[in-house]
C-alpha cells in the first residue's frame, strides 16, 4: 500500500496495512547489509539529524548506520549538553536545525510528546526514537519483524512482555503493533509495575511468569530500571529476579521453539540470566540486525512522502 505519512511517531495511529508495509520494506533492506558495498542511494544528498535529548548510544548508532546505508548525511545533536540546557525551547531548537536544511529529524526524549510537537512545526520528517514512557515505534517494529521472520506470521501467536510495563515505551508500542496484527499479548510483572488499565488495550495481565510461560511463542524481556527499585515500587532486585527473572529453570516450562527477546542493554542476572540470553532460543542479536533494516525502512518511507 502507499505510504502517506511524513512522520513515524508511534504505532497507535498506524493501521495494520501500514505496519505490514514497513515490515515488508524492511525485508528488502535486510539484504543490503549482506552486499559488499552496504549502501543504496535513495537518501543521497539528504540530511538526517539525530536529535537526542536523552542519551542513548545504541539507538543513535543504529539510526546513524541506517541513514548512512541509505547514503544520507548524518548529524548528531545531543541536546543534553547544548542550548536546551540553556533554556532554549524545544520548538526553537528544532527550527534552528531545520533552517540549516534537514530532511529527517530522529528524536529521542526523556518525556512524552516531544516528537509530536516537533512534527507539527517542522516541514522535515520526524521519526520517534523513544519519547519518555510513551512510544518507541522502531523498537516494536523490529521486535515484531523478528517474530515474523521466525514464525512466518504474527496473527494468532501469544507474545509475553515481561517487566516494568507501566513505564515502558517498548511495551506500549509492542502492544499496539502486536494487537493490530492479531497476536495475543500477555503483560507480566509485579502488580505495582503492571497497571490494570492496560487491560483496556486488549492485553492479558499476569503477575506470574511461571503460570503463563508455557503458552508463549515469544517472550520479550524488558530491562528493569534501578530507579524504580529506588523509588520503592518493588522491594529489591533480588526479589524481582526470583519472581520474574528468565532463567534456565523457568525455560524448562517454555515451548521448545519459544523466541527469547530483549530490547537491550541486558541486566545480566536480573531480568534474564546469561545462559538464557546467550542460549539457543535467544534472538537478541538478530533483533539488533533487524533494527537496522527496520530503521532503514522507516527513513526511506517517511522521506518518500511528497511535501
Amino acid at each position: 500500500m502507499e505510504w502517506t505519512r511524513k512522520d513515524l511517531l508511534g504505532l497507535q495511529e498506524l493501521s495494520q496495512e501500514e505496519i505490514t508495509t514497513i515490515l515488508d520494506t524492511a525485508q528488502s533492506f535486510k539484504e543490503v547489509s549482506t552486499r559488499s558495498i552496504r549502501k543504496v542511494p535513495p537518501l543521497r544528498g539528504k540530511v538526517v539529524v539525530n536529535l537526542f535529548f536523552e542519551p542513548s548510544t545504541r539507538t543513535r548508532i543504529s539510526f546513524e548506520l541506517a541513514a548512512s546505508r541509505l547514503s544520507a548525511d548524518v548529524i548528531n545533536f545531543e541536546a543534553t549538553t547544548s542550548s536546551a540546557a540553556k533554556g532554549e525551547t524545544l520548538t526553537d531548537t528544532a527550527r534552528n536545525i531545520e533552517s540549516m536544511g534537514v530532511d529527517v529529524v530522529v528524536v529521542r526524549h526523556s518525556v512524552p510528546g516531544a516528537p509530536h510537537r516537533l512534527a507539527k512545526v517542522l516541514c522535515a520528517s520526524v521519526v520517534n526514537a523513544g519519547d519518555g514512557s510513551h512510544e518507541h515505534p522502531t523498537q516494536a517494529l523490529l521486535d515484531i519483524f523478528t517474530i515474523r521472520q521466525h514464525k512466518g506470521k504474527v496473527e494468532g501467536l501469544t507474545v509475553a512482555i515481561v517487566g516494568d510495563i507501566g513505564h515502558s515505551r517498548v511495551a506500549r508500542s509492542n502492544i499496539w503493533g502486536l494487537k493490530k496484527l492479531g497476536a495475543n499479548v500477555i503483560l507480566v510483572g509485579p502488580s505495582t509495575l503492571v497497571p490494570t488499565k492496560f487491560k483496556e488495550l486488549g492485553a492479558e495481565i499476569s503477575y506470574s511468569l511461571d503460570d503463563v510461560i508455557g503458552r508463549c511463542d515469544a517472550i520479550n524481556v524488558l530491562r528493569i530500571q534501578l530507579e524504580r527499585q529506588e523509588a520503592g515500587l518493588f522491594p529489591s532486585i533480588r526479589e524481582y529476579s526470583r519472581l520474574f527473572g528468565l532463567n534456565v529453570e523457568r525455560m524448562k516450562r517454555a515451548k521448545p521453539d519459544v523466541l527469547i527477546m530483549h530490547p537491550g542493554p541486558i541486566n545480566r542476572g536480573v531480568e534474564i540470566t546469561p545462559q538464557v540470553a546467550d542460549g539457543s532460543r535467544s534472538v537478541i542479536l538478530e533483533q539488533v540486525a533487524n533494527g537496522l533494516a527496520v530503521r532503514m525502512a522507516a527513513l526511506y518511507l517517511v522521506t518518500s512522502v511528497k511535501r
Binding site: 512524552p112 519518555g132 514512557s133 506500549r172 488499565k197
Partner: peptide, 10 residues
C-alpha cells in the same frame, strides 16, 4: 490519572 495517561505514558 486514567486511560489517556496510561496510553500517553504520562
Amino acid at each position: 490519572s486514567g486511560y489517556v495517561s496510561m496510553v500517553l505514558g504520562l
